[in-house]
Design a protein around this nucleic acid. Sequence first.
DNA 1: GCCGTTTTCGGCCCGACTGTTTTCAGTCG
Length: 568
Amino acid sequence: MNKKTIIRTFEKIALYMELLGENPFKIGAFRKAAGVLETDARSLSEMDDILELKGIGKGTGAVIIDLMEKGESDLLKELEEEVPKGLIPLLKVPGLGGKRIAKLRKALGIDSVESLRAACESNEVSKLPGFGKKTEENLLHEIELLGTRKGKLPVWQIQTIVASIEEELREIPEITRFSVAGSFRRAEEMSSDVDFIIVTEEPATVREKLLEVLPVEETVAGGDAKLSVLLDMTDLVDADFRFVTDAQFASALHHFTGSKDHNVKMRQLAKSKGMKISEYGVELEDGSVKTFDTEEAFFAFFDLPFIPPSLRKDGREIERAQEIAGLVKPEDIRGDFHMHTTWSDGGYSIREMVEACRAKGYSHMVITDHTHYLKVANGLTPERLREQIAEIRQLNEEFDDIEVFCGTEMDILPDGSLDFDDDLLQELDFVIASIHSNFNQSQEQIMERLHAALKNPYVTMIAHPTGRIVGQREGYNPDVPQLIEWAKKYDKILELNGSPHRFDLATDYLVMAQEAGVKIAINTDAHAIDQLDLMDIGVRYGQKAWLKKETVVNTWPLEQFIREIIRK
DNA sequence: GCCGTTTTCGGCCCGACTGTTTTCAGTCG
């Protein structure tokens, strides 16, 4: 028996109870119990007090005992016998929740999507109390759409969508200010929708203009407080716009940034002090509503530091609030150590990249073009690299406000050898090693390749260590705990590639790496000037792993960087 | 079902919108 099984059992029980239209708080109790086990870092064998945990009581405890003693849960078995499996997909139909499903089943014997479709078509549903013609039509419509609607979209796709919506919002004069909220603002890897907070005195006008300028496929809901639409932007995506007054902005932004669990925890905290949080402000004991100029002021009102959106997750961030001051912040970053130029597959010259980094106020940077194995990227031969080194050294003389270091992003070849000899590597300041080929090798082969790079005394860092593309490609499946152990042993940096396509290493691995005492570099891997701006989202992603400022080598002052990182 | 320095009963975050009602239930986020 392992923890995962217990968690899954709780979730299944909750699901079946939902289909039965059970008391939502009872359902919530099982979900909460699952969450308690999920967030506890210990393995099952390390938890001798599992029945004592807050959130585990008589009912949930009995399930755990059942699972431990018999390997199965009587409660779940009973539920599985009682509830037809065909009902489960019905929860995916928008507009259908546990109560309505239970009613449909009781009144009409609905036990699957198909039987619901038939009942709608023969107009039986609209005859039920609480249901009507419109509901029946909507259900039929949603059943048709079932499965065609896209699930969550990866952050890099959401980023493009957000940018194009923001362009439209800027053009509407009735909007005084706005902000994206929701999971994108929290730097989540995947989002199921996009949320915007809009300050306006004329919500109806703004709503009509939005419906005009956006590629609206369907209007889900529209009132004076919000507009919900389905947009057709390369993919179909749900978008929510909330209209608030200027005074309500900070509270609304906090509320619609979430996460849900974070909000619940904040509201419980307020409640314990006799106050009530809503998206419009904080209702005090005397019934008056206090609003805030900024989210900072909102948190300060509850004696909390500003909790960055990326950290707003399961509510535990509120208990860990005193750690936040020591975490890496975008403004701590002093340099970017992974970028490409026209020498390989980048779009801008070295000089243009340097100017762009100067404009960002960086004190140092590393140019890291590809190496000759990567022919598709016009990788540098040893000769061209030596020419590039000369050019960088000369260019560096021109600037006294930034230090430009010579680097490379060297391929680790399929046979485990490196693309350049040590003689050449030792002429460089900073050597990145990375895998761009033969992802389908066995884990042993992949690890041999990584080990070869880590053992090399001239290698500084492993870039995008797993090779994943968020929401699209798994990568080459390295044994990451082993990789972290080696990085520590050979004193190498592991990258958090801040490009939203990658976010590599992922959060859980970053936590492991930091705990192991491994240094992390957050880089943009920019192939163009504007991509240098990805540092911001990269850092915010890193905050999800509670990366401390000192863990992230990009925050180190130039002198420390030279002393501890640059090869002489 | 779980919880409790006001509690072992009565709460459990809060509000918008839709469609059904004729004041509100259900769903959603």
